[in-house]
């Protein structure tokens, strides 16, 4: 009875907006997210500082990047975030199958990002641009590498959420987990939103 979609839907509808404030996920997850954002802000600042010191070199090296890779990856992550948001709404409404489908779509955007990044790295390395080429490429590989690690962790979290939903079905506990996975996924998205212009767009 407890996990039937009808029950979830009915009770959800009647109690919506019962409280004004709502903390999705748990405090610990937010502490982790804020900590990670703080670490990345230091990395962004270091990059901008070094770029100011070696402006000419950074502009020349940056022109070797293919902006299309960056734009495609941005759209992929934004779309992945939308799928996660829709999956959470579906879960709150008790729609198990719909949640699963949306999670699969979100996972595929993470995998797509990874594949696109591998092609981009291969392209750069085959053109002779490695971690040791210059300071711009040192930052490029370091920042995108750390971010790619976050994408992998986020994608694994989504795969776990998909498998757990298949095995155990929807519950209040599951929705908290989905909120946590979603928040981490959105953080990965927003960090890329800052990285993309810094590395690819600004002159």
């Amino acid at each position: 009875m407890a996990s039937t979609p009808e029950n979830l839907t009915g009770l959800t509808t009647t109690s919506t907006n019962s409280s004004k404030e709502y903390l999705p996920s748990e405090l610990g997850v937010w502490m982790f997210v804020l900590g990670d954002m703080l670490v990345f802000s230091v990395l962004f600042g270091s990059y901008a500082w070094e770029r100011a010191l070696q402006h000419g070199l950074f502009i020349t090296a940056q022109s070797e990047l293919n902006q299309t890779f960056g734009v495609v990856n941005t759209i992929l992550l934004l779309t992945g975030s939308l799928f996660v948001v829709l999956a959470l709404h579906a879960a709150r409404k008790g729609k198990t199958k719909h949640t699963q489908q949306l999670l699969l779509l979100a996972i595929s955007t993470g995998v797509g990002f990874f594949i696109n990044k591998v092609f981009e790295y291969r392209d750069k390395i085959s053109n002779g641009f490695t971690l040791l080429s210059n300071d711009f490429f040192m930052f490029y590989y370091m920042l995108t590498g750390i971010h790619l690690l976050h994408v992998c962790v986020g994608t694994c979290a989504l795969i776990y959420l998909y498998k757990r939903l298949s095995a155990q079905g929807l519950s209040t506990d599951y929705i908290k987990h989905l909120e946590s996975g979603g928040i981490v996924w959105h953080m990965v998205d927003l960090l890329w939103i800052a990285l993309f212009p810094l590395l690819y767009l600004i002159k």
């Binding site: 029950n7 009770l11 009647t14 919506t16 709502y22 709150r92 209040t172």
Partner: peptide
């Protein structure tokens, strides 16, 4: 018990809207 559980689920901050998303 079910209602308590569902009450927790129901604490969603807003009505979901596909259009808004």
């Amino acid at each position: 018990q079910v209602q308590t559980d569902m009450g927790l689920i129901a604490q969603q901050p807003h009505k979901s809207s596909l259009v808004k998303d």
